[in-house]
């Protein structure tokens, strides 16, 4: 099991890698979304905010997320560190994403562009 701190670290790595890629900012300039990230095996919640192409995150919940990502802490940490693709746990049901299918796909595109295959 990963810790809340590790999930925070993984999101920090994700945020940094996003900030380093100018293509992503252009690509998401019209895609403003709030993504709630919840671990289902420990008390851990983060909110990732995409606004005007910039990505940031904060610890804690948001009341009105566009997307909600729920999985165990290990998967969340590995996924945001880019050690696994979101598709693998999504396809075997250990990752659940609540939201429109297009948004789920966009989130995967971002992960792909940040971490590669």
């Amino acid at each position: 099991m990963a810790t809340h701190g590790e999930i925070t670290e993984s999101l920090r790595a994700f945020e940094q890698a996003y900030a380093d890629d100018s293509r992503l900012k252009v690509m998401n300039r019209d895609w403003d979304r709030k993504v709630l990230i919840l671990a289902d095996d420990l008390e851990s919640a983060h909110t990732m905010i995409l606004k005007d192409g910039e990505l940031s995150f904060s610890e804690g919940k948001t009341a009105d997320p566009d997307l909600t990502v729920i999985s165990n802490s290990d998967i969340l940490a590995d996924m945001f560190f880019g050690d696994i693709t979101p598709t693998e746990p999504y396809m075997n049901g250990s990752l659940r994403i609540i939201g429109p299918e297009d948004d789920i796909l966009r989130l995967d595109f971002i992960s792909l562009l940040i971490w590669g295959e």
Binding site: E6, E9, S10, A13, N72, D74, I75, A77, D78, D83
Partner: peptide, 13 residues
């Protein structure tokens, strides 16, 4: 593995 490189003590999942 970026996670294990960053946190060598973390368990693989």
């Amino acid at each position: 593995s970026r996670r294990r490189n960053q946190n060598p003590e973390s368990r693989s999942q």
